[in-house]
Amino acid sequence: MNDREIVLSGKELHKSFGPKENRRHILKGVSFELYSGEILGIVGESGSGKSTLLKLICGIEKPDSGELIHRGKEYTGIGPEKTGKFLQMIFQDAYGSFDPRMSMEKSLKEGVGVSEEEMVKVIEEVGLTKDLLSRRPRHLSGGQCQRMSVARALLGQADILMCDEVTSALDVTSQAQVVKMIEDVRNKEDVSILFVSHDLALVSNLCDRVMVIKEGEVVDYGETKTVINNPTSEYTKKLLDSVIDI
């Protein structure tokens, strides 16, 4: 894995929120690398800093300190209008990720100059039909909507996909379909994926490497098998125990 190109990396990322007297440190020196074509899982409980890390990566929030690098070029502090050229996001709330007033076609075309044929091709790739393009988000099922957001991300032609708890709001069947689709996307397209989840079982099946975050600090990081078989932190052990208990 280490022979492959590093597509994205974060170095010593710090982020805090709130007034000076009551400042909360959400991220405390998080560093990571995302290699070309891999799926990196980011695991942690609610409030551990996973979503904040994604916000820093896509430029919605600026880090207090640290560096973000895409293919050797630092882009720390650049807004999402520019980071969108190389990364796209698939959100937990699939419905909320589409403008409720817009048809799917309009949402998918927004900002990307794609032809009708290209769009239909991608729609079919994610297992949907073109008749759904005229619908608004509320007229799709949760699974269909999530597939649409994958289609949008693919149309953006980014080389990094960030999946933020993409399965947590779906039923079991749709979850399996979306996970299968993400695997297919990784195999077919030239993309690297950051897969954020609190579900260690899912991450261990899907991801090549995994990073476990607790209270803003990386407590375990490495090949998935290594982390699962030889966790170094008590927190990861507890997470694994809870998976086995289930």
Partner: peptide
């Protein structure tokens, strides 16, 4: 801060385009 606004930003839309293209209609 709705995800569709973030998605629009990631699609290259600037502040004014978001205000008049997404916020105003909603």
């Amino acid at each position: 801060n709705e995800p569709y606004i973030t998605a629009a930003k990631l699609n290259g839309k600037n502040g004014m385009q978001i205000i008049f293209g997404h916020i105003f209609p909603n």
